[in-house]
Design a binder for these strands. Structure first.
Lengths: 315, 315
DNA sequence: CACCTATATACTCAACTAGAGTATTAATTA
DNA sequence: TAATTAATACTCTAGTTGAGTATATAGGTG
């Protein structure tokens, strides 16, 4: 180990939000009992940041990386520094990435472990209708928080943010605001920024915590993916080679956290010509067997518009 | 000057795409005769990257920074390194930002200088209808380039990219694809990655060049801004305190590079309740005087949906 | 076998949106 | 006064979106 030079050295850290789908559930790859996202230093012998990230996620998790997209870069003093090295002058610049893959780690329950992302953000899952957590637990506390602010301008501002983010009143729920909702809950004191020890990772009511700011990075990744599926056909990065249209719908629903209208979803899919029949038919457990489809690559390598909008459903 | 230690040191460089509007034209702040964007190192005594950027843009350009948004981070070997220090092992991580401001530098023509961004990307201005440069100069060359590729799969792929990005055939023009178009022109050899000397900055036909990868960063900034105005009311960051609706329309047109339908633009604006009358009326040069409006801040501090979509017009 | 269940698939419908166009009004300037 | 420039008020039509109804096709169960 070498000591950093007298002038404060800068370290680059790469963090990955690695997403896969298993049994219609969105999974994210974690380390150390779900407390960390895979991350590590950028070695300067790599030609680009992405190759650095790939090399290293694969080495650490034995997991091939498919689609990769950059999320955000920050170097805030008070965010990364939490480990307790009070006098350490090293400056950390943290660059985060979103990665999609169809692979699944076939290991024991130990370290690199896939976790359902709704365990970290239980209020984000509206597939079964209004998440009861929001109405019963979150909204009352947020209202108390906004009412407790003395300044009346501040109070109105808080009320407005609550309404926009959590759909107070009869407003819509916007599934894209994952990060804003997390930040609002943090400001309101319902959710801590980071788990400080190994033992504080579980927080049943408002979701699992993570160390450092990894939970915030995860929120950023989910938000990015949810906006992306609306204009780029990225879902296919997460699907197996052949799939039924219902499977595809369940996949989009899992990511968006909302139920979709089945018939309209199908209309949309074939309007856009994103898929083609394989000829085969699904061997199913129950009900009428469905045709199998595959992603028709030549049509959509870099489709400009349209992607996969969301045919929402009220229910 | 200190030599870097034996282990290769990493430098963080911050680059800003600073945008303003003057006389209905989009302007970007440049240095050294338009060859560079303002940029400089991140000093590790700054608490965050943004404060680093602000401090330093203001010190270098005497210009206050308003709205700021991060663009992209990269550390590619072959991109930043162009200066010729062949053996220099310093690794540069470059973080770019988009900044909006209504201020205008009141100086002589010397160094920090606002330039119309369409001087760098002349093919991006479609306000007066189809840009003749595209039909007459660019498309023929791109077609020659795609036809010259031997492989037929490659040929089809190139044709498809040309069609999507530049609207070959009768397809639509998508104003958001600024970066993809620039990259396509670069691949086709119509545009160089960087100006290598002071004298190669001018390239009348396909726009002015910049040194390093600053022109690519500028493209990224324009693209981001063009997508952003569709769902967030960021135009107002660029407007004076009071303005007429036509001025507002011209501003959006300048950014998007397309003509808008006047009546529909107005319909959209007041549907969304983004502005309110000031009571005053414009002192005009010609024609019927228009009411003056201001951005109604309390309504839209963090509006979730809707922003300002673009009521396009064919003509 | 009749019947039930679960899914696939085909259509229809109404409300809303987006792009376009026409007509009218209100000021300034030649 | 006429010409000009721009603001403002409506209407129209095609397409999109969320929703609902109806029918088809499989496996399983009494």
């Amino acid at each position: 180990m070498k000591l950093p030079s007298a002038t404060s050295a800068i370290t680059i850290e790469l963090t990955a939000v690695l997403v896969a789908l298993t049994a219609d559930e969105p999974q994210v790859l974690t380390l150390e009992d779900g407390a960390l996202l895979p991350s590590g230093p950028f070695e300067s012998d790599h030609p680009t940041l992405q190759t650095g990230l790939r090399a290293w996620v694969e080495q650490q998790t034995h997991h091939p990386l498919g689609y990769v997209e950059q999320l955000y870069t920050f170097a805030d003093r008070n965010r990364a520094a939490e480990g307790g090295h009070g006098l350490d002058q090293r400056r950390v610049v943290s660059i985060s990435y979103l990665g999609l893959t169809r692979e699944r780690l076939s290991r024991g329950p130990r370290d690199p472990e896939w976790r359902n992302w709704y365990r970290y953000f239980p209020w984000e899952d509206w597939r079964a209708g209004t998440a009861p957590l929001v109405a019963r637990e979150i909204l009352p506390r947020l209202r108390k928080w906004s009412d407790a602010s003395g300044d009346s301008a501040l109070k109105r501002d808080r009320r407005q943010r609550i309404e926009i983010n959590f759909g107070d009143g009869k407003k819509q729920w916007n599934e894209d605001l994952v990060l804003q909702r997390y930040e609002l809950l943090y400001e309101a004191g319902l959710v801590p920024e980071a788990a400080t020890g190994r033992h504080q990772v579980d927080a049943p009511l408002f979701g699992m915590m993570m160390r450092h700011d990894h939970r915030r990075i995860l929120a950023t990744g989910i938000a990015r993916l949810r906006t992306k599926i609306k204009y780029r056909p990225v879902v296919f990065e997460l699907m197996p080679e052949a799939f039924t249209l219902l499977q595809l719908q369940r996949a989009v629903e899992a990511l968006a956290g909302r139920p979709l209208h089945k018939q309209n979803f199908r209309r949309l899919i074939d309007q856009q010509g994103l898929v083609e029949e394989t000829g085969a038919i699904s061997a199913h457990t129950a009900g009428r067997p469905a045709k199998l489809y595959r992603f028709s690559r030549q049509v959509v390598l870099e489709r400009a518009f349209g992607g996969t909008k969301l045919p929402l459903s009220r229910s």
